[in-house]
Design a protein around this nucleic acid. Structure first.
Lengths: 133, 133
DNA sequence: CTAACTGCTACTAAAATAGTATCAGTTAGG
DNA sequence: CCTAACTGATACTATTTTAGTAGCAGTTAG
């Protein structure tokens, strides 16, 4: 049961670090060494965070990344969305062949219910909450 | 977010079929065609179910597998245990390097909490419940 | 005796995750 | 106006996990 991949985990940690340094640009290199995340990997993650406007960037010397949203308004499930795809993806792939099989359908229903539960729980955890001392 | 692997999913479906045929031995071949599960794959899964005494087997012609427990007493999380390993495995792998980083620890704590929640939910779903018409 | 079974071991294939390399373009600061 | 320190973007490779296969030895009903 791996709820979060490393990418997601790193992304959250990056956002947490940026939250603690709201007012300046942190370079990929800097965050990488602060959090022990491989440099090239962090660059990839930062680009995704950038694309989804979680952060803004500044190019050139002394450039880097800065938070672009209120950490109260980013939840772990928002991050999951972009790094692991939609949290709710099991749409009864067995429908055609197997819905005559009642137990399969019930299982899918239960899984969906639990996935929703997980999603809600992650939605309640904001980056702000994680960085609160 | 994939809560169940195919192996687990199949295992549950196998147990459900066996529940519906409590009083006779079903061969791997039979279950395979009933549930559209690849034959060799199902054999693997059945062997694991056997090793953990979920089922008993009979060798030779007309042999096969039969449920060995009360389906009320098998939960989805029991099955997960054997096919996906312990549901609760994230033991703060970052402890050494990162627990000075408060946010990481809080995240781990939250993940653990959610994993526990998932485990409890799956524990409440028995095979009997899944096969109830 | 043999076809239909299971027991067991050891594979291969495919997909997802994790991590790397590299080049082009930007900019602060000497 | 050069250059070192940056980001933008693309395209890889490596590792791990999941999914599925092959095949032989031994058992048993008929």
């Amino acid at each position: 049961m791996k709820l979060l991949t490393k990418k997601t985990d790193y992304a959250i940690r990056i956002l947490a670090v940026l939250t603690k340094n709201k007012n300046r640009f942190l370079s990929a290199r800097e965050i990488s060494s602060l959090q022990n995340i491989p440099y090239q990997f962090i660059r990839q993650i930062l680009r995704i965070l950038l694309q989804h406007n979680f952060v803004v960037s500044k190019e050139g010397g002394k450039g880097g990344f800065k938070l672009n949203v209120d950490p109260k308004n980013i939840s772990v499930s928002d991050v999951i969305q972009y790094f692991q795809g939609n949290i709710m993806l099991s749409k009864c792939m067995f429908r055609k062949q197997l819905c005559h099989n009642r137990s399969t359908c019930i299982l899918k229903k239960e899984i969906n219910r639990i996935e929703e539960l997980v999603e809600k729980e992650f939605a309640r955890i904001s980056i702000a909450k994680l960085t609160k001392t």
